[in-house]
Amino acid sequence: MTDLSSQIRYSADVMLGAALDMAAELMECGAEIQRTEDTVERICRAYGASRVDVYVTTSLIVATVGMPDGYHKTQTRRIYYSQSNLSRIEELNSLSREICENIPEPVEFEKMLRQSKKTENPRRKIIMRYVGSLLLAAGFTVFFEGSAMDALAAAVVGLCIPTLNLFKYKHTNAMAHTVMCSLVAGVLSVLAIAVGFGDHADKVMIGTIMLLIPGVDIGNSLRDLFFGDIVSGSMRLIKALLTATAIAVGYSIAILLGGLLNVI
């Protein structure tokens, strides 16, 4: 093997690796399957691949890229968790457009991806999550016919969800975490009503339930299913249904407690 061709192969490896890192991050932020597959294919084609086979599911990405000189390379990425992050999807989308246009050196591409991740401010994200939870719980309480006092109670109780999410790590069991979140939120809602903070226990609980509802998963699963990504679509749908069941388990204990305290 000549020096030149080994260098070409090395840059193809780096390029595929960076493209897959980008795809894995897209999936972690809650992008659709089609978009992720499309992104990998576009980037590889831009770098001169003659053949790209990429298969994305919600937990695994497999891609084989073939270069014109007959060199093939396969890489995989495992995805463990997902947390919707709409602005990151958008950022990665525009980064991939930029890369397809300018085609920087693969090492440079890798560096750009790493740098764009660094610009995220984790503290700002956490603050936004708190403010968002407050508004979401209050807004939906009024939307589902609750009183102003209910909205206030839901907003305060809802703050427990982002707090609990601070303790959610990569290998935390998502279902157990959801049960715990809904149990804590439900019990706190009932206790708030019991001490006279808020008027209707049901409205306060509905407001806090909306914080846990897997809205992004449901929306994406339908689009995936009907765009032909049956495996990922059904995986996402089942995940959403399991999450809904976990929510039901947590809140039903709170409802039992509410019955005992005579607030429901």
Partner: peptide, 24 residues
């Protein structure tokens, strides 16, 4: 108006949780 305003407040909260780009 009640539905719209409360819905918009709730959605504002939701997009903050989902970390939307402020421009959008």
């Amino acid at each position: 108006l009640k539905y719209c305003i409360s819905g918009i407040v709730a959605t504002l909260g939701f997009v903050l949780v989902c970390n939307i780009n402020f421009k959008r």
